[in-house]
Nucleic acid binder design. Structure first.
Lengths: 220, 220
DNA sequence: AGAGAACCGTACCGTACGGTACGATCATCT
DNA sequence: AGATGATCGTACCGTACGGTACGGTTCTCT
């Protein structure tokens, strides 16, 4: 398995000046997509020289990777290590997680960076996708994993493979919304419906993995 | 609701020569991504003139739209309107659908076109995403819808909202695999695992929507 | 056979991008 | 104060793309 340290450009931290430039780069990306993010345009918008950009980030790909690392470093995925965990609290935590997940995926920055990485994925040797998964998703995955483990320890849910259970939960929550949002379908981006979607997904998740009346494996 | 006829460039059918050119364009897209699909490159690869390309498709965006329409016209989504439908047959049909869905989404052409449309989605006024959904997904959606309706009529499953049930099935099948494949994660593209994934998804779907021992809504 | 349309190959144009070079400016260190 | 290094603004270069124009060729229709 790859670790974060495997990815070039990931470990170094950026100076405040560089972070400001990266923030401006994100704004340009949000405004006009990848085509709007040119070195000359960024230099002008961020009031820095192109020479500095190439000195700091190497080349354009390095800049894109730095943008992903920078954005990921801003999002702190808290771990709900709920101590006193009863069923209703556990369920509420799951619904919170589901709502947060949908809101994150629907966020402007997330969509822009995912579009960027996906657009680059066709080029051979582009590690932006890998980088995005490592730096962006790992935190969310860990939070969910810790949550599921806690629920299982309390006997509130039961599963054999934690990752499989998590992926099922993810599918129940996100469905095909992420891809539709990435494709720009307006109907898929309706944050006011996320709460209801989260509720339903968690309800279904409990039907599949919850411990209630019939906890034994169904024969036949 | 938009219909296919709403989309400019969709209704016209292409001449054999144009179809051959579009096929060549798809090959170029598969080989090197969007950057490799230039008008000059396509003209050279397809042995046609750039002037003809602009005459046939208007501009580059028209060419991309034509590629999507052309590819969609090649994929014929059959409808499993199974007549004698018992539970095991219905389940087999669902597993077939799930396997087909995963294989389609993992296909080279599908991934390339989705990456193309997603990469263009940031630009304002790009209808490629809409076009891809209309022309590519509608067929699959209809096939699944007909299948679910048939199962419900036979009393094999029960649901209130067919679209909701379908989206749940979709989420159970695809999970986050589609986005991971779009991002280029090698681990997500393992067709040898699709059969098992399809089986598990359908099993879970029946737990949620199947009619067995307790078919009444769970109180509390 | 002859006219007309469609099409091919090539050349051309303007633009815009990635990347580099250089002088000027500013901050810091001794 | 003087030197050193980082950075800015600008200019520059080579390339490559989207789109257009044009002469020559092939096909079709009458």
């Amino acid at each position: 398995m790859h670790d974060i340290s495997d990815i070039p450009g990931a470990p170094e931290s950026f100076t405040p000046r560089q972070r400001a430039v990266l923030d401006r780069a994100l704004e340009l990306l949000l405004e006009g997509g990848e085509r709007a993010l040119t070195t000359a345009g960024l230099a002008r918008a961020a009031s820095c020289s192109k020479e500095s950009l190439y000195k700091w980030f190497g080349d354009r790909d390095g800049l894109l990777a730095a943008m992903i690392s920078h954005q990921a470093s801003k999002v702190r995925a808290r771990i709900d290590d709920g101590s006193a965990l009863d069923l209703s609290r556990f369920r509420a935590h799951l619904v919170d997680f589901a709502t947060d997940l949908l809101q994150v995926l629907a966020g402007d920055v997330s969509l822009a960076l995912n579009r960027l990485a996906i657009g680059q994925a066709s080029r051979e040797g582009s590690r932006l996708g890998q980088l995005l998964i490592e730096r962006g998703r790992r935190g969310i995955d860990r939070r969910a994993g810790a949550l599921l483990d806690a629920g299982r320890r309390r006997g509130l849910i039961v599963y054999g493979d934690r990752d499989a259970a998590y992926h099922t939960l993810y599918g129940l929550i996100v469905r095909d919304l992420h891809v539709r949002m990435l494709l720009g379908e307006a109907g898929a981006r309706q944050p006011e419906k996320f709460a209801a979607l989260a509720e339903e997904a968690v309800t279904q998740f409990f039907v599949l993995f919850g411990v209630r009346e019939n906890k034994k494996a169904d024969p036949d």
